[in-house]
């Protein structure tokens, strides 16, 4: 168990750094896919079997395919090399380190155990489905409506309007 955690941590942290450090957005997307699979591994270690599978199928599969598809469709040029964001990088890094230290101090003492060791708690399809269809049934149905609205909204935003001719490079 321990060796898996260390291995997954190395993969997750290095691929997360790869997302923000890679110049080419395609490489960032590939690093993010590795990171999502590593987080699915964490879910499996935490006995959340259903979420581990959904993480791979929905996130690393569907959502990232959509992102990579749009990225290749737009074929954007590489991010320019000028260091306009150096000041922002320093400021956000300082705040991030402060955040990490602060939260680690809060959580380090209180959650130093692995909690209640209930062997009955397994995030299988049956157990999680029972929770979703009884306690959270309204939220579940509402999320169906949300997905429907997202499909309609995405189709409406992305479709071209035939009346207006598309200007080549001109600003509207």
């Amino acid at each position: 168990m321990n060796i898996f955690f260390i291995l997954l941590s190395a993969i997750a942290l290095s691929s997360a750094l790869g997302v923000i450090l890679m110049r080419n957005p395609i490489h960032s997307a590939l690093c993010l896919i590795v990171n999502l699979v590593a987080i699915a591994g964490y879910f499996a270690l935490l006995n959340a079997h259903f979420l581990a599978l959904v993480q791979i199928i929905v996130y690393a599969g569907a959502i990232m395919v959509l992102v990579v598809f749009v990225l290749m469709l737009l074929n954007s040029k590489l991010e320019e090399q000028k260091s306009a964001g150096l000041f922002m990088l320093v400021v956000s890094s300082v705040f991030a380190v402060m955040f990490i230290v602060h939260m680690s101090k809060i959580y380090g003492a209180e959650f130093s155990t692995s909690g209640v060791a209930s062997a009955s708690l397994q995030g299988t399809v049956a157990n999680l489905g029972r929770v979703l269809f009884t306690q959270y049934v309204f939220s579940f149905e509402a999320s169906a409506v949300l997905l429907m609205a997202a499909i309609v909204g995405a189709a409406m935003l992305a479709k071209t309007t035939p009346e207006r001719p598309r200007g080549d490079g001109e600003r509207v």
């Binding site: 321990n2 955690f5 942290l13 270690l45 955040f99 990490i100 680690s104 380090g108 959650f111 130093s112």
Partner: peptide, 12 residues
């Protein structure tokens, strides 16, 4: 593994 190690990874 303890919960705090998962939380540390999450925070980072």
């Amino acid at each position: 593994m303890s919960t705090s190690s998962y939380l540390t990874i999450s925070i980072i």
